[in-house]
Design a protein around this nucleic acid. Structure first.
Lengths: 337, 337
DNA sequence: CTGAAAGCGCTTACAG
DNA sequence: CTGAAAGCGCTTACAG
């Protein structure tokens, strides 16, 4: 039952004024070396640490940033968060976590709350529903309140804020091209995130890579039951030889489908997904995937925000950082064979 | 570029004192209805919200709780966090997230930091390394500082704090018994978390359920390469007919092993795992699993802490809540056939 | 080199 | 019913 000691109490014990103690602890040149030592010694003895709330009130900063995560059960976002936390830790900032659960309404609530002054800056990945509705007014309200915002992963390109994402289009373009070079003629794509920027971009990359002679084979839906029909159409009717999956769910659906219909991977069907290294290598067969480096995205986002907060970043000029992906070739394609 | 309006500014505009404004906004009975209305109207007009930092300083509370997560990339913990966040939201508390990455040193750092007064209470799941070392002094230091602690999932039973977990032992005991009743003779267990309380408890449950005539078949290791040898021993040499997996990794390892060695699931080998509903049903074949309800654990943990903070909880008497698990029977056992 | 005073934005006992 | 004053725990310009 230690009682936290305050500056005032320290000053009494030392028979000096509160101001002297405060300055001494902050190594002010105004204070004699002797006093500084005396003060610091006693402070250490009592394990004094300034009350962060009081410090914040003076500085009119909260020392805290808010992170809005659309869906924390998605390992990608969990890892981004861990990158953010690690980097925040490095620069001495606290992280408050808010989960929008992909809901527009919840996202609005959170933003509304944040504008009351809980945080100095916000890291945001836009909820699915907000993207579908194209409702972004609440995000602009953060900007109105002069709260720096960094968008991560799900980026709205028009907003006057810093952004960090992945080269979605390019990575799907590359991998499609690779399949074509390997002689694959009918390449399909499956997606459950067609309304997200990231999904759209990935689809765009795929389309751009297809040769004029090739047809698009796209199975895309957010509805589970309907998606299976689409998959049937693409895998069975249109007989694709390879399929790109834009996300976790579509990958698992395709695997299931192949399993249930005795489609052999990779002999009958090659699969490439956007997944994380903690699942893809363990699937049966192991999945070839595009690695996104979520930790790096998190760290990068935090770095961008920190530069804003410290004033290092140029005003009215916003950075757009891209974290490069990498194709990991495993059993579901087996290119190297 | 809105400037946040303060009480003082409001009071000037209204030609009343700061105290009157404050009281009016808080519906003090000291203030006349007329004034209250006048004040509230202007406050609403200017979208006034009290500076949370200032309020905290007065109340000497931070309105914030700290959550320490051992590994956020583990969906279980991610979902626990989402339950915590949802419940905190409900009672108007902020959540600061810290990730220990299973490291003792990091956990000590975090706790040290938290004792400076950033939070009113702490939700903690103990890092793997701390458990292995049995080093818990840092946790007791939170208690010394009068910061209420609630342990979740990974529980140290001796500590004088509230706890919430899962009926680990019982659930493995039950499922083992069920296998025995179905006529399975040789039942094995695979684990990569034998040094965690949760792992130990699950193993205990398994052992307790085995009949005197039955042998234990345990493959347990944290080392990947070595684990495969153990799995070989149990699956091939000792020819178990069913295997319980205590965690995500061991489940995936066993699936991989079966896949690589043409062991058919469930015909040759039945598998039951501790996993989440976002993966187990999509595996090929789908995995029978013990559902832990992580959201509920998170909410429960937050509720316990909230009761401490509000003083509803009895002093020196600590609750130990258990969230019940449920066996979900899918293709990897196919009991119902 | 040290200290008294003001102030960050609130709340609340007390006086009128 | 309203307001002046003190105070939460700090920091910092200013005086001495």
């Amino acid at each position: 039952m230690k009682n936290k000691i305050t500056l005032k109490e320290l000053s009494k014990l030392l028979n000096v004024s509160v101001s002297t103690v405060s300055k001494a602890l902050n190594d002010s040149p105004e204070i004699s070396q002797k006093t500084i030592e005396r003060v610091k010694e006693l402070a250490a003895l009592h394990n004094y640490r300034p009350n962060p709330v009081a410090v914040n009130l003076k500085s009119s900063r909260s020392g805290t940033i808010g992170v809005i995560v659309p869906n924390i059960a998605n390992t990608f976002f969990a890892k981004v968060l861990s990158g953010i936390e690690a980097q925040a830790q490095e620069v001495g900032l606290q992280v408050m976590t808010y989960i929008s659960d992909e809901s527009y309404e919840r996202e609005v609530q959170i933003v509304e709350h944040l504008t009351a002054g809980f945080v100095d800056g916000v890291l945001l990945s836009i909820a699915e529903e907000s993207q579908r509705k194209r409702s972004f007014d609440h995000i602009y309200s953060l900007i109105d309140y002069d709260i720096p915002v960094v968008l991560y992963d799900r980026i709205n390109y028009d907003m006057p804020v810093d952004k960090i994402g992945v080269n979605d289009a390019e990575s799907f373009k590359k991998v499609t091209t690779k399949l074509i070079k390997k002689g694959v003629k009918r390449i399909g794509l499956v997606s459950t995130i067609l309304h997200l920027v990231t999904g759209k971009e990935r689809i765009r990359g795929y389309k751009e890579a297809l040769l004029p002679s090739m047809e698009e084979h796209i199975a895309a839906s957010t509805r589970r039951d309907y998606l299976d029909d689409c998959i049937y159409q693409v895998l069975i009717k249109e007989e694709v030889e390879a399929v790109l999956c834009t996300d976790f769910e579509s990958t698992l659906r395709v695997y299931r489908y192949a399993y249930e219909h005795n489609i052999r991977i990779p002999q009958d069907l090659k699969i490439i997904g956007f997944l994380n290294d903690d699942i893809a290598p363990y699937m049966t067969p192991s999945l070839s995937y595009i690695e996104q480096n979520p930790q790096k995205i998190g760290k990068g986002a935090m770095k961008l925000l920190h530069k804003r907060l410290t004033g290092e970043a140029e005003l009215n000029k916003y950075r757009e950082k891209i974290v490069k992906t990498k194709l990991i070739d495993l059993e579901s394609t087996n290119f190297e064979l």
